[in-house]
Design a protein around this nucleic acid. Sequence first.
DNA 1: TCCCAGGATCAAG
DNA 2: CTTGATCATGGG
Length: 309
Amino acid sequence: MRTNPRCTKQFTFNVDDVKGPLNLSETILSAQTSEPEWISDGFGFVDVEKVSGDYVKYSVTQNGTPDQFTISVRYITASTDISQTDLKQHLVNVLGLRDDLRLFYGKFSADEQLSATFGSLRGLRLMRGTNLYESLICSILSQNNSAKRWNHIARLLMKHYGKKVRFPDKSSWFLFPRPKDVAKLTARELQQTTSMGYRAKSVLTVSRMIQDRELELESVVNDSYENALEGLLQLHGVGPKVADCFLLYGTGQLRAAPVDVWIHRIVSRLYFKNMKVSRPTTASFLRNRFGVWAGYVQLYLFHYARSRV
DNA sequence: TCCCAGGATCAAG
DNA sequence: CTTGATCATGGG
């Protein structure tokens, strides 16, 4: 169905063949590094993406319960007209609604450590970035940084160097910059405008490599996990945790399990009786034990650990 | 003033 | 293969 592009539209949908519950706000507010956190506008959570050829500003909210829900969307397009079906499919992808959480909960119900997180985090889903460059930069920015601050830095990047999109309701939005927009800058300028600190060197290196076609993030998407990881670790400022964040949230490699201080701590405690295990050991343990669900296990253990401090 | 924030890098042991 | 200092920056 197509509608007039010049004003705000609204529609509600339920996901066909729902694969388990959804907790939208828990999902949005869980600081996943696919992109900066969506901002609440009073109706729902707002983001701007290109859908069926045009930029769309949408606000998304969940109705009902985590197990019986519909999703309402208000949206406005920049210039042309878009398909609501395309927008729905976009949201299904971004919010991980195809991931079968019922299967996940059932598969590991006997794991007492893990299944203890299923109650309070029920409906938490892995988001998927739609912009590989954005996902990689956000992951780099998150190193040795708080979620609030890397989000702030990412927003500054958008405001200073991203294209400004205008909508018919007089609102506007800054897109995430392209690699070429960043590659031409100096480290000092990046630091002064975004306060990203020493991470500017890594951001610049990656941006320039992409512009010079020494690095093609698209080729990582269909690569095996092992090959993709090996390639990413060659990049300056990209270590095991950042690489796994990019693979998980950026490319949708669900067997990637980013190991940060929290995951390191909680996995050591829950599965190694508090013995000293290295971070690489922790990461491979998660992959070997949980397979394609390793990324989800990481997400659940991370938020469970942090909520219990 | 020191410590921490979803770490990575480098030099030593 | 592990450990420590260092890296920018802002907040507690």
